[in-house]
């Protein structure tokens, strides 16, 4: 069930909790799957020097990010015994407390899904050309930095 086509990972705004439930349900007929590993990124209301974070506004070099995501996907499928992999990343403003990243990895057995999910999240953080600007309650903003 290897997926090779380019899929758009970007969605406008926050990812609703209902989508996550619906996507789990969509896998009910893929009975070769024995494990799902899901990672959800949530916008944190950090206290910054200039104010408190109320939202993050995401922008991306979309064409490059899609190509890079395709390469990351291929390498993870080659390395782990996976059934499928889905990534959804927000663009535009996402408020504190809302979901901005939804990573969903499935495999016949748990170890592959758990390992691949962790590697995938790290790759998304450090290899995808995406930028977050933290919007503060003081109407100022600071560019986010990944750690």
């Amino acid at each position: 069930m290897k997926e090779t086509k380019h899929k758009n990972i970007f969605v406008n705004g926050a990812i609703p909790a209902e989508k996550i439930a619906a996507d789990i349900q969509k896998h009910a007929d893929k009975t070769g799957i024995g494990a799902h590993s899901i990672f959800l990124g949530q916008v944190r209301a950090d206290e910054k020097e200039k104010g408190k974070v109320v939202a993050i506004e995401y922008t991306a070099y979309e064409e490059m990010a899609q190509e890079k995501m395709h390469a990351i996907r291929e390498s993870l499928f080659a390395k782990h015994d996976l059934s499928c992999m889905h990534v959804h990343h927000s663009l535009g403003a996402v408020k504190a407390g809302e979901i901005c990243l939804f990573v969903f990895v499935s495999s016949p057995h748990r170890a592959a899904a758990i390992k691949a999910c962790e590697e995938l999240v790290e790759a998304i953080k450090f290899e995808l050309p995406v930028w977050g600007k933290e919007i503060l309650d003081t109407e100022q903003s600071v560019w986010k930095e990944n750690r």
Partner: peptide
């Protein structure tokens, strides 16, 4: 040519 600051997605 694209100039890109360090990434901060996710």
């Amino acid at each position: 040519v694209a100039l890109m600051p360090p990434f901060s997605g996710g």
